[in-house]
Design a protein around this nucleic acid. Sequence first.
DNA 1: AATTTGCAGGAAAGCGCTTTCCACTCTAGG
DNA 2: CCTAGAGTGGAAAGCGCTTTCCTGCAAATT
Lengths: 332, 332
Amino acid sequence: MSAVTLSQVARQAGVSLATASRVLNGSDRRPAEHIAERVRDAAETLGYVANAQAQALARSTTGLVGLVVHDIADPYFSSIAKGVQRRARTDRHQLLLAATDGTDQLDAVAAFAAHRTDAIIMAGSRRREIDPRLLAELTRYQKNGGRVVTIGQAWLEGAGSVTIDNRGAGADLTDMLIGAGRTRFAFLGGPEELASAAERRAGFRSALERAGLAAEAEVVQHFNSQGGYEAARELVDRLGSDTVRGLTAVVGNDVMALGAIAGFRHAGLAVPDDLWVAGFDDIPNLRDFSPGLTTVRFPLEQIGETAADIALSQDEARIEHVVGEIVRRESA
Amino acid sequence: MSAVTLSQVARQAGVSLATASRVLNGSDRRPAEHIAERVRDAAETLGYVANAQAQALARSTTGLVGLVVHDIADPYFSSIAKGVQRRARTDRHQLLLAATDGTDQLDAVAAFAAHRTDAIIMAGSRRREIDPRLLAELTRYQKNGGRVVTIGQAWLEGAGSVTIDNRGAGADLTDMLIGAGRTRFAFLGGPEELASAAERRAGFRSALERAGLAAEAEVVQHFNSQGGYEAARELVDRLGSDTVRGLTAVVGNDVMALGAIAGFRHAGLAVPDDLWVAGFDDIPNLRDFSPGLTTVRFPLEQIGETAADIALSQDEARIEHVVGEIVRRESA
DNA sequence: AATTTGCAGGAAAGCGCTTTCCACTCTAGG
DNA sequence: CCTAGAGTGGAAAGCGCTTTCCTGCAAATT
């Protein structure tokens, strides 16, 4: 990675390093136009590309923002990533992406800290119990002047956040379904140690309780499509096909819900003819599904944009709250 | 972004900068264990995090790999990104991601070049006519020692590549369908200036020609779900519902195909009862769809991994060829 | 015992920039 | 006509590391 350096450009243009820097890489001091032109010409003919690493070192700011997700192939996260990327670009920032599979968030954060990203956005579903080492790492990062933004809940002191009303979403969705006359419910969800999963379920439960109802089953599975599929099969196994008929399955997220619908289908149960299914998030690929999935929409791309906006803003770390919006379709 | 520096650690440990560096940040020279321990202790208590920018400058290698995609929210690209990320991590490399919306690939490459990424992987669907400035930028990048890997076709001299047999996929899929007795075909595809779209279509045409058949229609739309939807509607508008019945629609990619199925459904046509649809790629979210989409599978994550592998390898730039595999499901 | 060898840690020279001073010229003001 | 002030370009000091030498010492060799 050797390349043309600024001093080569300066020499070619017959000016000092300082002048060349001022002309090429922005400064409040603008050298005289006839000089500037010489420098630009030299840069052009030599093919100069500023070394961002060196600039970062000298300026002590990198123009990098780090995004930590669970799984970039999950539409939930890739939608958020799209929003983050878009916002970052308008600030001429580059996106450093880490997909952690949920385990090695610590490594990812450490790497970002090492790269001195200007901000870190944590979109990976937070665990109920946060790894104290992760907390320590992030806190140190903040102490050194880095900005942290968490998506989901505001679980880090001093960090910005886009909080997502998971509990409310769970409750509202369930209320709506109860209002539509449903009385028999099951919940298919992700592992309890994921905060978002737990909260959605808590909302579900509270709505049921308020209506004097109780869930006929709650099953826990992986937070992905395969998990949804398994969850549906498990439900049928446990309750029997006949009992499952007429049930309203509230499923932890859309990705799982789609898997669950497939699972029910393979068990010979059709949605919405035999039972109903509703999800959360309104991921973009829902648009092609039939039956249309009833869900609680969260504007994922926009959430990403907002997170990036908070991350890149110079002001104090903001916290923005996002409330879901029920989207009623055919599935429930 | 001020933080503990190596010289602070060195001072605290009572050793020289050189020694501290050797202990902490890897070197072929291992200082004595009792010294190393002192250094590690000092680093630990001070909370030292190496500055990757400074290391990059000194080592002239950044541990960064850049990935350029069209749209990170498209499952095709996010699957590839997942593979790239996985492979990059095993080499302790970080992923710099740029989503270009197809237009500003040049900006992305320039930014990566500025950040001195060790490699650039171009996964953005290549245009038929490559912007000469993009070519120049990439060539310069290569000249400076950067490795470029293109996904799709090997369109850059000296670059590595994971080439995808789009033409073969188009032909094989069509051959298979002809072999299954289909005679009436339509092609719904992306814009002709996208190389992959053009090649798939070319394969489709040649297979038809070989069988003495001709497409009843070819429609061009955006290379996304919405485009697929529109394409289906357009086809029905142009040919009329009755003519569309019994057609086999080969669709440029899975994302479009799913959109097309939705489009047909909204036009009152069911797949596979009224007509058939087949796609390309075997994107992961296909697993939840019903009817199962017949498609040509390309192992997207693995393609990403291979691309990263070529990118990070020290040897000469390899070119790996990937041939699709037909996956027959209910839709065609 | 005298020499070589081998290896340790340290000094210092970069890596490619930005930015603070500094010396200088030119204009405006008295 | 002299001086303060404004503005210009340049020298040089970092930014935080890595790595090449260099020096010094102990062990190995004759």
